[in-house]
Simulated scan of single mutants.
Amino acid sequence: MCRCVPEFLLENLASFLTFVRRFNPRTLEENAERFLNPILTLILTFMDAPHRMLNPHLRARMAECLESFLPHPEERNDLNQLNPNPFGCFHREQLFLTHPHRLHIVQSLLDVFVGIEMTGQSVQFEQKFNYRRPMYIIMNYLWNIEQHRQCFTRLAKEAEDNMEATTPPLFLRFINLLMNDAVFLLDESLNNMAQLRTMQTARESNRNQNRQQALIIIFKEPEL
């Protein structure tokens, strides 16, 4: 039944949540009771199972929707604004603590993280990394919540116990891709530092050359 849902509906949902999060996050709090729980259930339903959503790009967008629900510290000080939000980010904090399917978030997230690698050769590494960027933010937030940290620990223990399995465990594949991303970022950083050094050297050389030319003009003997 879920496979019959048109993909453009979920694409529109992702675009809407991203827009709301960037421009009017207080909407998520004002309509929390009838909005947050059903939407998170919908996100987990499609993000958790490839057989319900065959498009890996759209599953990655569902992870971006999940990132839209994260509370941000600056919103706790929203009462100081001209148009204050009296709820702050209370309901979104409670969403990750009380939602009935909250313990599925970590595994669903890692499954999407790994599944992006199967999008095909036409997808460049940079695009895959951009898909994973909001997932890093979500993982960082979930790691600070004890019950979600236990989910990470459980998956890590399962991976350790099944290290020699024919099909690599989910957490092991996640760690492998995580290291690939880290190496990619390190390589990009070193390349950018080398380019900056080259540009800085060229600018200093040009500056010294201009200074020498200026001194020559100043101290040059006037022609008779």
Rank of each mutant, 00 (worst) to 15 (best):
N55G: 13
P56A: 11
M62P: 10
A63M: 10
E64S: 14
E64I: 06
L66F: 07
L66C: 09
L66N: 10
E67D: 05
F69Y: 08
F69R: 06
E74M: 00
L79M: 04
L79A: 07
N83L: 12
N83Y: 12
P84Y: 01
P84F: 02
N85E: 07
N85T: 06
P86D: 07
C89N: 13
L95I: 13
T98A: 12
P100K: 07
H101G: 11
R102N: 05
H104K: 14
I105G: 02
I105N: 01
V106M: 12
Q107A: 10
S108Y: 08
L110D: 09
G115D: 07
G120C: 13
G120P: 14
G120L: 13
V123H: 11
F125L: 15
F125M: 15
Y131T: 03
R132N: 06
R132V: 02
P134M: 00
M135P: 02
I138L: 05
M139H: 00
W143P: 00
H148A: 03
C151I: 00
F152H: 01
R154N: 08
E158M: 07
A159F: 04
D161H: 05
A165R: 12
T166M: 13
T167V: 14
P169C: 04
F171P: 03
N176L: 09
L177H: 08
L178W: 08
V183H: 13
F184Y: 14
F184T: 14
F184S: 14
L185F: 02
S189W: 08
N192M: 08
M193C: 12
Q195R: 15
R197E: 11
A202S: 06
A202R: 11
A202E: 06
R203E: 00
